[in-house]
Design a protein around this nucleic acid. Structure first.
Length: 678
DNA sequence: AGTAAAAGGTTTTTT
DNA sequence: ACCTTTTACT
């Protein structure tokens, strides 16, 4: 059944009797090994529902379960397989908490806030608390949410977080405390949990009187990407294990890239202390990349992170000796870079490499903007991962809020958004209406109150209020979420014209949400799952006729983790972007940028192109033509001799290059103008 | 009083 | 390009 595994992989699959840590370098068949291990456990007769598989993305979970099932099916004479409990920490927390809600003191129909929702809630609380005196600028809601999440995940005190990570917000410490208190109170009275709460409550259960009950739910626990777990997740794992629980963690300390979320490789390094008697297996044979690519990636890593700093040293060796050296492209400016990459992509396609075999990676979401323009110009279809999420677009949130009201009438944030979308209703009127409807009052049902005619709406909003009542009322008679969405669109049609310049494409775009919803018969599940596993790409409000065709992948490096392509491009490999100049402050920040670079390089199987523009805009929002001159990333520089170099684009290429003489026409023009009225 | 429109700033990465 | 603050208007 496992003939195709190498000896180390086979050892990792077969090991039993004590906890196991698999140290798996990039491309060493980690997914295959983990899936084979699950299959082996199933083949040994385990009940699938007693296996817990924690992964970093839901996609990874689905892929592993599918592989494990396929493998196990070969031997499992008709035994049932299918209900392995698999997903991200957050998705699993959501499921467990619905089950254990009573013990946790939560309402069973709690709503999950995604990052954008929680940002909005911070914004709402902030205005409610009347922060920001005249003249003083208060940190943006997003920043407040960032401080909060950092605080929770690192379990550090506010003053330390401000000192270390947000020094420019230190003046507002007192106001932040007020906001955090109020934020927490709102979440509790509204029966909503944010992402961090999901983990906190899960951990809370493991440490409580019902912890033993929860621990007895699973006999086998497998965790992927262990290097990217944070202290809370680490507590959860330890809290989920009985002495005899079969625990298996997989990770690569050279690929730890979530420090900003308080993840720490310390969890991995301390595995054998946390779980005495644990076995460690190391996978070093790389099946993914050609030797020239591997040599380059190894050089970049070992030069930047000396091996004394890495307890689990691995030198990857490959079995694909043939291959071209990586290309290092020095481009004049961003436009030249976009053209070079688009040219190469098309060229590779001519040579028989489908677009789906190719990917473009970059450090920050906006680094692909120039390339996206070029791709549009050439009609190259692509999907972008890691940018703005479909779910975070304003109009989608409008519709989701309506559904959330139906699902949880205490959800004041959803009410607030819906009410404010109506004409003549701003924050103050919305708050008055919320009070009149008794939202989040222990004893009353706001939805009933609205349908009973409570709530004095300002006169411009009369029609909209009537439609809101009618739509919500109708939805209570409808079961299917997709049909409810259909009915709620009527209300959107009335409000969108006030709120958006271009309402029609937005309305049309909501059809996609309806299509997603039609796969669900239960609204609560739809809402929770869609926030925990949002449809990845930016929909761009445009049609997507290509998607079952062939398309290119654009992705942030973070979102590319665990994936691989035959042909990979890394954009903007210039100092300041990679490493990001915001990470230059401390050694750990810099080390993380290096690992990020390493992750990017090791995604490539056959071909790798690293490019950087020498000249790019000073800042991202620049409206002028001010530029800055960049140098090749210090991380790439050390492997320069392992690359083939090309240079592209020159100053002269620009058809609008400025002449050297300086003249001044302003007087002439102004005098002419003045002549028109003097 | 409170909403709508216009001006002014802006630290990546994600579940 | 988006979010926050300021000002202008009902």
């Amino acid at each position: 059944m496992f003939d195709d595994l190498n000896p180390q992989q086979a050892a990792a699959v077969d090991h039993q009797g004590s906890p196991l840590l698999i140290v798996a370098g990039a491309g060493t068949g980690k997914t295959r090994t983990l899936a084979a291990r699950v299959a082996r456990i199933l083949a040994d007769g385990a009940d699938p529902s007693r296996i817990l598989l924690l992964t970093f993305t839901r996609r990874a979970a689905a892929e592993m379960v599918a592989r494990a099932k396929a493998r196990a099916a070969e031997e499992s004479n008709g035994r049932r397989h299918g209900d392995v409990v698999a997903g991200t920490f957050h998705a699993v927390a959501n499921r467990l908490l619905r089950h254990y809600s009573a013990a946790a003191g939560l309402s069973a129909n709690f709503t999950v806030l995604d990052a954008a929702d929680s940002k909005d809630l911070f914004g709402m609380v902030r205005t409610a608390e009347g922060m920001g005196e005249r003249g003083k600028r208060f940190p943006r809601a997003e920043t407040v949410a960032g401080i909060y999440s950092r605080l929770v995940n690192s379990q550090a005190h506010l003053s330390d977080v401000l000192d270390v990570d947000y020094p420019w917000c230190a003046d507002h410490a007192e106001d932040l405390k007020t906001i955090f208190n109020s934020y927490t109170a709102h979440k509790r009275s509204n029966s909503v949990l944010d992402f961090d709460d999901l983990l906190l409550f899960w951990r809370g259960i493991t440490a409580s009187a019902v912890g033993e009950h929860l621990r007895n739910d699973f006999d086998h626990i497998l965790i992927d990407e262990y290097q990217d777990t944070n202290p809370i997740q680490n507590d959860i794992i330890r809290g989920m294990c009985r002495p005899d629980t079969d625990l298996c963690a997989v990770g690569d300390d050279a690929q730890a890239i979530y420090g900003f979320r308080s993840a720490t490789v310390a969890n991995m390094w301390a595995f054998t202390e946390h779980f005495p008697g644990a076995e460690v297996v190391t996978l070093e044979q790389n099946y993914r990349s050609t030797s020239p690519i591997l040599a380059f990636a190894n050089r970049v890593l070992s030069d930047g992170l000396p091996s004394d700093d890495r307890p689990f040293v691995k030198t990857l060796w490959g079995n694909k000796p043939e291959g071209t050296r990586p290309t290092l492209a020095t481009c004049w400016d961003e436009r030249a870079q976009s053209e070079l990459v688009a040219d190469s992509i098309l060229d590779a396609r001519e040579r028989g490499m489908d677009l789906r075999d190719q990917a473009v990676l970059f450090r920050a979401g906006h680094h692909s903007e120039g390339l996206e323009l070029e791709l549009h110009r050439r009609d190259i279809p692509y999907v972008k991962y890691g940018g703005l999420k479909y779910l975070e677009t304003a109009h989608v949130k409008d519709l989701m809020s309506l559904l959330r009201i139906l699902d949880n009438p205490d959800d004041a944030l959803a009410w607030h958004r819906v009410l404010k979308s109506m004409e003549g209703v701003g924050p103050a009127t919305s708050r008055r209406l919320e009070a009149e409807l008794g939202i989040a009052d222990e004893t009353s049902d706001a939805l009933n109150h609205l349908l009973d005619g409570l709530g004095r709406f300002p006169s411009p909003a009369k029609t909209q209020a009537d439609e809101l009542r009618a739509a919500l009322s109708d939805c209570r008679e409808i079961q299917a979420p997709a049909e409810q969405i259909d009915r709620l669109l009527g209300f959107c049609e009335l409000t969108f014209p006030n709120n958006y310049d271009n309402p029609l494409p937005r309305l049309a775009d909501l059809g996609q949400l309806g299509a997603t919803a039609s796969a669900y018969s239960n609204r609560s599940r739809f809402l929770a799952e869609v926030t925990l596993d949002p449809p990845g790409k930016t929909s761009d409000l445009a049609q997507e006729p290509y998607l079952d065709d062939d398309w290119l992948t654009l992705s942030t490096i973070h979102s590319a983790k665990g994936m691989e392509w035959r042909n990979v491009y890394l954009l903007h490999a210039a100092d300041g972007n990679l490493p990001s100049d915001m990470a230059l402050g401390d050694a750990e920040g810099l080390a993380e940028e290096l690992r990020l670079t390493y992750v990017a390089l090791t995604r490539a199987k056959d071909e790798l192109t690293v490019s950087f523009p020498m000249r790019f805009h000073v800042n991202r929002f620049a409206t002028d033509d001010r530029h800055v001159y960049a140098q090749l990333s210090r991380f790439i520089e050390v492997g320069r001799d392992l690359c083939n170099e090309v240079t592209t684009g020159t100053n002269e290429q620009s058809p609008l290059s400025a002449p050297n003489q300086t003249i001044n026409l302003t007087h002439e023009v102004d005098n002419m103008l003045a002549g028109l009225w003097d």
